[in-house]
Computed example of a mutant assay.
Amino acid sequence: MQVQRKYDAKTFLTAKTFLTEQMTRAQGLRLKRLSEEAYQPAQYARDLSSSEAARRIQVLEAEIELADSF
C-alpha cells in the first residue's frame, strides 16, 4: 500500500526558511557562551543558519550536562 502525501506549500516554505535563515542574536550569544564553556570555540561561527545553530546548541548542552554528571 502506497501512502500519498498532500503537498503543503506553507509547511515547505516555512521549513525551507528555517533551514536557510541566519541564526538569531540570542542563538549566537548562547552558542558562543556554550562553546567557550565546553572548551570548543570552533563550534561558534557567525554565519550559521538558525537550524545549524540550534543543532550545535543542543549538542553542546548535552556534552556539558554529561561532563557535569561526573
Rank of each mutant, 00 (worst) to 15 (best):
P41H: 12
R30E: 15
T11N: 10
G28E: 10
A15V: 00
Y7D: 01
R55V: 01
R46K: 05
D47H: 05
M23E: 04
R55C: 00
R33A: 13
Y7A: 00
A53T: 06
P41R: 09
T20F: 11
K10Q: 02
K6L: 08
G28W: 03
R25A: 14
A62V: 08
T17Y: 14
R46V: 02
A26E: 14
I64F: 04
R33E: 10
L13S: 06
A62M: 12
L60M: 05
A67G: 02
A42I: 08
L60C: 07
Y39R: 15
E65C: 14
S51Q: 00
R30Q: 15
I57P: 03
T14E: 08
L48E: 06
S69Y: 11
G28H: 04
R30N: 15
A67L: 05
L66E: 10
A67P: 01
A62N: 11
Q27C: 03
A9D: 07
Y39M: 14
R5W: 00
Y39A: 15
V3R: 09
E63C: 07
Q22K: 15
T20N: 13
M23F: 02
R33D: 07
E36Q: 10
S51V: 00
F12I: 07
A15K: 08
S49Q: 03
F18Q: 08
R55D: 04
G28S: 07
G28V: 06
A67D: 08
D68K: 13
S69I: 09
L13K: 12
S69D: 09
A15Y: 01
Q2D: 00
T20D: 12
T17L: 13
T14C: 08
A42M: 13
Y39I: 12
A15M: 03
Q22G: 11
R5I: 00
E21Q: 15
A9T: 10
E61T: 14
K32H: 10
Q43A: 10
D47Y: 06
E52S: 02
L31T: 05
Q58E: 12
L48K: 03
M1E: 02
T17F: 14
G28N: 07
A38P: 07
Q4S: 00
T14L: 09
A53S: 06
I64D: 02
V3W: 05
L66V: 14
D68S: 12
S69C: 07
A15F: 05
L31G: 05
M1S: 13
R25H: 15
I64C: 03
P41D: 12
L66M: 13
E52N: 07
T20M: 11
T11G: 11
D47I: 03
Q4V: 03
L34M: 12
R46D: 02
K32A: 12
S50V: 07
M23P: 02
A53I: 03
G28Q: 07
Y44W: 09
S49H: 06
L34S: 12
R33K: 11
